[in-house]
Structure formats: C-alpha cells, structure tokens
Computed example of a mutant assay.
Amino acid sequence: MNLNRRTVLAGLGGVAVAQTPLRAFATSTAQIGDYEFISVSDGNLVLPRAFFFDGLPQDELVQVLEGYDLPDDQLTPPCNVTLLRHADRVVLFDAGAGPAFMPSAGMLLDSLDAAGVAPEDVTHVVFTHAHPDHLWGVLDDFDDLVFPNAAYLMGSAEWNYWRDPATVDTIGEARAAFAVGAARRLEAIEERMEEIKDGQEVLPGIMTHASFGHTPGHMSFELRQGSDALMIGGDAIGNHHVAFARPEWPSGADQDADLGAETRKRLLDQLATDQTLLMGFHLPDGGLGRVERDGEAYRFVGADQ
C-alpha cells in the first residue's frame, strides 16, 4: 500500500502518516506510539544547478533526472525542520536558518506559530550539524536566543570542528563564512550545550547515528518502538533524485564527498531493508517518506504518493 494523505504505511503497524497542513507551513506528520512528529517549514534554499550536478557524468545524469522536471538554472530545495512532541518535551531537530542566511529561508517561527508552538515552549534543540540552514536560527536579529528555555545537543565531533579556530582557515574559501557564523552562534549557546556521541540515547526513545561526510560530525536520529521507526536524516541524504538513484556519486554539498557517499549508501540500504520512515531536511513532501529499492539503486516515496 502506498503512502497517501490518510493511510498507514504498510509494514509499519502503528506508524500513522498524514498530510495535514497546519495553515500553509507544516506539511506532514507521523505518530509513533505517543511520539508526535510534525514537519515544519523554514522556507527553501535557492542554489545554482551547478552546485548539485557539476563534475557528474553528464550523459548518465540526463537519464537519472528524466521525469523530475527540474529547472535549468537554479534549484529550490525545501528546508524541513522536525518538531517532536512527547510527554512534557517539545523538541526541534535543527533550528533553521534565521534571518541572516538567505531571504527564501528563515520562516521557522511562523511555522511553529501555525503549529501552536511558541519559541519559549521549546525544551530541546537537537542538531544534525552546524551548517547555516540548520544552526543560524538560534539567534534573532538582535543576537538574542530565539529559544530561551531550550537545552541544546550536538555531536562532539561536530561541536569540536566548528569551535576550532583553525576551521575557518582550512574549510575552504567558499565555506569560510559558514565557519565564522557557526563559531559565533555556538559561543552564544555554549553554556546550554550538551555534547553527544554515536549510539547514545539522547532523549527517551531517541538514538544517535553517526552519519559523517556531509560535515565532519553530522548526526542522524532514530526513534524506534518495536518494529515502528522514524529516522531524522538531516542532510545525510540531501536530495530526492541523484542521492537515491546514484548514491555512490560525490555530492558538492558534502564536505567529505567520499565519506558522504559511503554514509548515504549505508543509510539507504538500512532504510529500505527495515522500511523505516525517513524525515529528510531537503526532501519533498515535507521531507517525510520511505525508501524503496529500484534495481541496484533506490527511490524516494513521499507521503503523498
């Protein structure tokens, strides 16, 4: 049975999936036991097509992209922040881009308002990684904390990388501003930060999965109750076309392209084998769907398909 607007994903028992827009902002929800996940939009990025596709085998790329109807000049991947409600916790996985990164992003607070969540309600912010569209939303225009009551959690390797003063000189000119911006924002939340490790239960029912490559310490997070599970993948699987059809191809978005490809192949195999729901930060349909095998490759099946 396919995912659709009012169905349960076959093989996942009690994992209910629905397309229930909260005004215009939230796209998809998933219920696993008494855990409620809501995909809330932070807007979208605007990136040149070359960012995704330069350096790839162009003849084969044309075949891979058939049917996706992608623009010829620039792509606009969505930014899907995951909101979790469970017991007395209100948890965000990543904090969005905030006001200083890109005009098309930074709408997270409007989306949270549509979901009935005030910034003061957020108890935890758990980071997949520290790129601008995931971290910079912790501060507002006045450099005040957007989520003043939250505790913050980030993988140790990621934290140490962006807090290292040498990173700005070694990350490369194109990403130097990322390093400067990350260092400033991480300093602002340092006293509230908890460093976390691979395989750690960071909150009840939430386990970390090291998914390095996109950044040196990128983390994914899995909620599993019996046979029901959802993986918050961050940017480890960064798009719904090439990343699935040719996961072994290097991605220009990954800081370590070889490691990123190895991580992507491992995660896709795991998700397809276990039929775990995937919440992807830059995937369509609010990022929520599942992974299907397609010959020797994979494809993304969104929640409205």
Rank of each mutant, 00 (worst) to 15 (best):
T208P: 00
L12A: 12
S220A: 15
R290Q: 10
M193P: 03
P250W: 04
L223Q: 01
L259P: 00
V81P: 02
E120V: 11
M154W: 01
L203F: 09
R163N: 15
V138F: 03
W136G: 01
L230K: 04
D256M: 06
T7N: 12
V168P: 03
H241Y: 11
M1D: 09
N2W: 08
A87D: 15
I237W: 02
A105N: 06
Q255V: 07
I206T: 02
Y68A: 11
F244C: 04
D121L: 10
I171F: 00
L70V: 08
A179S: 10
L139R: 04
A176T: 12
M154K: 01
A157N: 02
M231G: 04
L153I: 02
E120G: 15
D164F: 11
A236N: 04
S156C: 05
V301A: 14
D94Y: 05
M1R: 08
N44W: 07
I32W: 02
H241W: 14
P77I: 11
M102F: 15
Q74G: 04
L45Q: 10
D164T: 09
S211C: 14
H129N: 14
F53N: 04
E190K: 10
V91Y: 05
G137S: 07
G238Q: 05
L22I: 10
D285N: 08
D274Q: 14
E158D: 13
P71I: 13
H241C: 06
D34M: 04
F52K: 01
A243D: 12
E191C: 03
A179D: 07
R264T: 08
T170D: 08
